[in-house]
Design a protein around this nucleic acid. Sequence first.
DNA 1: GGGGAGTCTGTGAACGTTCACAGCGTGTGT
DNA 2: ACACACGCTGTGAACGTTCACAGACTCCCC
Lengths: 329, 329
Amino acid sequence: MKRPTIHDVAAVAGISRGTVSRVLNGDRYVSPAARIAIERAIAETGYVVNRNARNLVRQRAGSVVMVRSEPHFEDPNYSTTIRTSIRLLGERDLSLVMMIASDDGEREQVLRYVRGGHADGVLLLSTHAGDPLVDTLHGAGIPVVSCGAVIGRETVIPYAACDERGGARQMAEYLVSLGRKKIAMITGPMDTPGGIQRLEGFADVLGRKASKKLIEHGDWTHASGETAMVRLLERVPDLDAVFAASDVMASGALHTLRAAGRRVPEDVAVGGFDDSSVAISTHPPLTTVRQPLGDVARETVRLLLALIDGAERVDSIALPTSLIVRDSA
Amino acid sequence: MKRPTIHDVAAVAGISRGTVSRVLNGDRYVSPAARIAIERAIAETGYVVNRNARNLVRQRAGSVVMVRSEPHFEDPNYSTTIRTSIRLLGERDLSLVMMIASDDGEREQVLRYVRGGHADGVLLLSTHAGDPLVDTLHGAGIPVVSCGAVIGRETVIPYAACDERGGARQMAEYLVSLGRKKIAMITGPMDTPGGIQRLEGFADVLGRKASKKLIEHGDWTHASGETAMVRLLERVPDLDAVFAASDVMASGALHTLRAAGRRVPEDVAVGGFDDSSVAISTHPPLTTVRQPLGDVARETVRLLLALIDGAERVDSIALPTSLIVRDSA
DNA sequence: GGGGAGTCTGTGAACGTTCACAGCGTGTGT
DNA sequence: ACACACGCTGTGAACGTTCACAGACTCCCC
């Protein structure tokens, strides 16, 4: 009933365990005869390497920990990110361990885990500016990368992200091209890259016209989109377009606009960001900016693997977004 | 630069490693003096136990693998489920490894992982009826539980779930209480518990009136909700209510109804299921059935831990849902 | 025929734990 | 005074690998 070990394989194949280990690890210097005998023995016994033993002697952990700084991840983005990461890490026999670090206790737990050598690398997800975990993790001397930039630590934590600023520019330019004159924006939290850079892209296009009056800040939630829209309408009743930094907030804005009797897109054009599942469930369906999530995840993992393999430093990367035109603008 | 080991702690405390191990594992039979000396040494050296070594000698894996059978998990439910699982498993020093098994290659990978003893237990997520992985995993002699029932294997795979049938009954009864006479239903796929049991609950209330004509099957997607609604309107133009087995499908139905010129809820009342983020982004916001996701996840993990601890068998459990009334019905 | 170089194999030690066992005091009951 | 239980401690072996090393064999060249 016991699981077969490398000794069992060696015995069945009639060869020493050293050679079995060489076959397992793809070493050259193994005779063809030995190799096939061992492969047959492996198949026969159903042998699978014991990772604990391997990692113990190799002084590795055998896993990468994905750390999420926020408790919720309604964000459909995570589905793709997680899936892609699992795939790519799996190819290298690394397993993906999930952790959440939204309060001090959880941060302490993550730190202990990493400090204890239980992970070969850390993959940060949507970390806010000033998160104390970032510096401590980086100080732990373990490879750390982020999916999406970490504001204030762009130079110390390598990252892959979509071109937030460029994406916002695409949307702003599109709204302008529709002939809209008074274009407002509902931003994300200003301690996140999506919050900051999407506003920058917007300002790039609108220039002076991106006045304070036309800017409201939200926190990514539906409710914040609703209230931001209320304030914008109070200040600028005749606005004719609004760009929300996320689809969820755009959906909140849509509610407010309807309640205020504005027609979308006739009176007010509405743009979102993310192309999440919400984008097609609103009325009207949202014109939005799509992030290349799969590519972003792939690049993030690639950066991490490079660091784990000993690269001194790696270059962050931003991937292009695309404008998805539906009915809201 | 090397990580401190149990030997270092023992040396610093001036006590043998055996006693250090006993302190680490909360053994009785340790003198107070030794205990405080060791605790001080642990703090001083920053020692953290090496899981590979521990698990190697204990013949355990130290992790639980969560297996998702579908590539996508837009479903906001997973956020809560993952979070709760991480929390509860963390308390027992078990880490959560994520895997996806949507094709044969991935299933093989999961099987190898589990067969190789890399996991102490398996937590199935939204597995479809007839999934070949279920029986092989169960046959591997490792604790397996599911979050949500596995159709056709209810007696062999213990599970925690919400009371799908009861939840559907709540919605059906509510629609009846509004005075609706011709109530249609858009179900989920009939190889999932949500597909089957929500229909059963609906039929419980509607009885003979739940005729074939008033039932359409969807696949949880927005698009399937749209087309199902089209067919229902063709067959029964004067229907006055529709219950979709998920919010996302309900949102699709809403689009079709609007396109057909029906007012919601005046002409047609619409009910959803899940209370997902979509529910508040539709127009009008959805009346829906909320699942106690946190509780379901907690119970699922509890079942798994009981099995890992050696329980012979555990009892599956269904938790009550609640009706959330908004504007669509 | 002697000396490398190149290919292949087996062996011992090590990785950092836990666990069973043996041993040592000290107190308690006969 | 002796036996015995109890509380506590140290030690050796084991868990299943990998890795460095040493050795054997073959081939080729001088």
